[in-house]
Amino acid sequence: MITTTGLKKVYRSRGREVVALDGVDLHVREGEVYGVVGRSGAGKSTLIRCVNLLERPTSGTVTVAGQDLTALAGGSRRAGAELRAARSRIGMVFQHFNLLSSRTVQDNVELPLEILGLSGAARSRKALDLLDLVGLADRARAYPAQLSGGQKQRVGIARALAGDPKVLLSDEATSALDPETTRSVLQLLRDLNRQLGLTVLLITHEMEVVKQICDSAALMKGGRIVESGTVPELLAAPGGELARELFPVGGVPSGPGGTVIDVTFHDDSTGQPVISQLARTYNIDVSILGAAVETVGGRRVGRMRVELPGTFEENVVPVGFLREQGLQVEVAPAGAAQAATPEENSK
């Protein structure tokens, strides 16, 4: 649905060059919620702005719903009629909502419809329907200044949906909201994604967002995508940085001479008493260094780091037993325990 190939963006100011995007290949499938995570300055914001060409990429192409937007834009700095028409079919929500303070909630939602040239009656019908969809039908006559942050973002979402877009871009839509409001706004995005078949590309610095609603995710660093895939794929790759961030399990081995393994279990196996079975069957002492069970993308996933006495060679049989139970077992690489120290996990 959204494809970028070799996307580059270089800012030039006073002879200095800043590379914001360094060859980004992004592929968002139709109907999925795709999250791009990364720290500030990683280029996420530039990336999402390049998708609807609010920011012109220096090189590379952007294709949305089969339409090559970079070709539509041509070389001119101003957006021509074709690019504007394409933009009207891509919804966008912003971190700071960007609602017009001079207009009521309803008039804000009507704005894109005015641009599309709908008649007054049609506009108001559509705007009220959309406000109903986001649960704000009763605030239609209020001004944005009279709304809470979560309500403002709902208006922003209603406005973004006005042009019946197939694609919704979300630029840190929940970063200015408190955790509870964030959850309800994300739930709304998830519902819209399911009900309307909306493809959502969102950027965020909060891992929670990826955990709650994303089907796929990518990690950006220094203007590049360093890891990407569906969330189950990412979790199944224990060495991956996203997996560690999504699901931090720490724990320092008690001393030399033990074997540290990371165990990942999904859905049904989360209920099984595998560790006590392991201890009983092989009569070994298992120490649990760290563990967590969470819901990621609607699935229960557990991770545990345990230490078995003796070298790996001595533990081949117990590890085989765990694998037989349908668990994913990885021997933690030396130093992995240190890499997942608490301050790393807290970001």
Binding site: N52, L54, R78, A79, R84, A85, A86, R87, S88, R89, I90, M92, F94, H96, N98, L99, L100, L111, P112, E114, I115, L116, R159, A162, G163, L169
Partner: peptide, 22 residues
């Protein structure tokens, strides 16, 4: 706020629309 300009542009508004509506 420049964000409002961006919002109108993202809706497919022209420069004239940005001036008139935002």
């Amino acid at each position: 706020d420049h964000g409002l300009v961006e919002a109108v542009q993202a809706m497919g508004g022209s420069t004239w629309t940005v001036v008139r509506k935002a």
